[in-house]
């Protein structure tokens, strides 16, 4: 603000004959161009177009569509809040929300600490650190659909299934894995954890290299063991990253789709039907309820936005 005022007055002193209004416009445009505005715009334009076309426009269309009845062929009809009413009175909604929360909770308990522990352990080892990191990252390289289809085979409920054979060596099982309403969801979380842990491990490993080694040395001098070093030195330094990965995980799990869709199709008996799978079924499960699908999508997006905002508000104080 201050800079621009100074520039304007400096220029004004040199071009007194030009009417004031015209002068201001030309000057500000010129300033804008000279200040790199044009090149910024040119550079940003492709991104703006791509985002506009593929991201913002569909979002706007979805908002419109959630108030319409449409089969995407005949002209849509306005139905007010009817789609939202249908979704909110659908008996499956409570089940889907419950299942999504269950997935999120399991993923948090099982999936959140695993990469952290793995990263801390890996950073402690002195040799072959790169090898361990590569091994941990390997599942991320496997295309998700391929990974799920592989695991589907491993989860075969017969006694000769891969996992049942393995647990059989220690006298356990055979377990029904995906074929039982109570074990289906934990089985999904197990695969999801395996598939995604590697990416987070790498992030933690990178963050760990930023922890000053003098702090560890000092802690050691003070007689701290490995556990106390982790608790008092490592974790406080990772706090920012931990918060980010936590919120990403919550958003990610709230939108879980791939695993239930490919593993179980929401079964057995709706035990793995998640909110996103429900959205998919509205639109593409042979019902063609696109309005309901977008209505539920918007509600999910709203909930996630509120959650994120709340979370950052609550944690902003202790994340710094």
């Amino acid at each position: 603000m201050t800079t621009s005022t100074q520039t304007t007055s400096r220029l004004a002193g040199r071009t007194e004959t030009i009417p004031a209004r015209r002068l201001r416009r030309r000057r500000s445009l010129g300033t804008w161009v000279r200040g790199g505005g044009l090149s910024t715009l040119v550079i940003a334009l492709p991104m703006l177009l791509v985002f506009g076309l593929f991201s913002w426009f569909p979002i706007a269309r979805a908002v419109v569509m959630s108030f319409q009845f449409t089969n995407l062929v005949t002209p849509p009809e306005w139905v007010g809040l009817e789609n939202f009413r249908t979704v909110l009175t659908d008996p499956l909604l409570t089940t889907a929300i419950g299942n999504t929360l269950w997935f999120a909770a399991l993923a948090l308990v099982l999936g959140y600490p695993v990469p952290l522990v793995a990263a801390v352990l890996m950073s402690e080892v002195k040799r072959f650190k790169g090898l361990y990191a590569a091994l941990a990252y390997l599942p991320v390289v496997v295309p998700p659909v391929v990974a799920v289809l592989l695991w589907k085979q491993f989860y075969s409920a017969s006694a000769s299934g891969v996992f049942n054979t393995v647990v059989g060596w220690v006298g356990l099982g055979p377990y029904p894995w995906l074929q039982d309403p109570s074990t289906a969801m934990p089985s999904l979380v197990l695969e999801a954890t395996w598939a995604a842990a590697g990416g987070t491990v790498i992030i933690y490993l990178a963050a760990l290299t930023g922890v000053p080694s003098e702090l560890y040395d000092a802690a050691e001098v003070d007689g701290a063991g490995i556990w106390r070093k982790v608790w008092h030195v490592t974790l406080p330094h990772l706090r920012g990253i931990l918060l980010v990965t936590l919120i990403l995980q919550v958003i990610g799990t709230a939108q879980v789709f791939l695993e239930p869709y490919l593993f179980t199709g929401g079964g057995p008996a709706n035990s793995t039907t998640t909110v996103l799978l429900m959205i998919y079924d509205y639109a593409f499960g042979g019902r063609g309820q696109y309005g309901e699908a977008t209505a539920l999508s918007l509600m999910l997006a709203a909930v996630l936005a509120v959650l994120s905002a709340l979370y950052f508000r609550i944690t902003s104080r202790w994340s710094h």
């Binding site: 993923a107 987070t200 990403l248 709230a254 996103l276 977008t294 999910l300 997006a301 996630l304």
Partner: peptide, 19 residues
């Protein structure tokens, strides 16, 4: 940990594709 790599970036994506 379940990273968003495996999920649509935003909740809307699935149904929005249609629009």
């Amino acid at each position: 940990m379940t990273s968003p790599r495996r999920f649509p970036t935003i909740a809307l994506a699935g149904a929005l594709a249609a629009s």
